[in-house]
Nucleic acid binder design. Structure first.
Length: 158
DNA sequence: GCCAACGTTGGC
DNA sequence: GCCAACGTTGGC
């Protein structure tokens, strides 16, 4: 697989759109990001082929449940213009869209979740953003070494 | 369900 | 531009 060299963690609530829905759909656009820092990561830094840790939040337990990749770089989030959408933003216009999406493609579901508790307990993951208290950012950059370590913890062999 | 942490909004 | 109020996130 050619392309991106970046690593990210993306959060999703399994009750809303979990890894099983992504596996079913194959590809989806990552709609509804309404945080400027997360948007900037998607808009400015995510490249096709970048690898994504798929994280379930508001879950029991919370943790990394699989892998995905960026299939298309940032473009305007169509839901921001749809008045009936929960992601509608009246201040955004097609001429100057405020929010973007990327396309996210399913890669794999881990056999076992790598729980948040497990991530926090691993010294080699010190400093990983998701393990920090109060860290709510739903799109986070991940260091390559941390990414590889999470795959080890998942016993993921590709 | 609770509540701490955090981001955004809006009055001034 | 400050900052209190408010709404949301997300672990527990």
């Amino acid at each position: 697989m050619s392309g991106g060299t970046g690593y990210w963690l993306i959060k999703s609530e399994p009750d809303v759109y979990g890894i099983d829905e992504l596996a079913r759909d194959g590809v989806t656009y990552w709609e509804g990001i309404r945080n400027y820092q997360a948007r900037n990561f998607m808009r400015d830094d995510m490249k096709v082929g970048d690898q994504l840790l798929y994280y379930h939040s508001n879950a029991k337990p919370a943790g990394v449940v699989g892998l995905a990749r960026v299939a298309r770089e940032a473009y305007p989030d169509p839901e921001q213009f749809e008045a009936e959408s929960k992601y509608f933003d009246p201040k955004s216009t097609p001429e100057e869209p405020r929010w973007v999406v990327v396309d996210v493609e399913f890669v794999a579901k881990f056999d076992h979740i790598v729980s948040l508790a497990h991530l926090k307990a691993d010294p080699s993951l010190d400093g990983m953003l998701v393990t920090k208290r109060g860290q709510r950012l739903s799109v986070q950059p991940v260091e390559p070494a941390h990414f590889e370590r999470v795959l080890e913890l998942a016993a993921y062999t590709g």
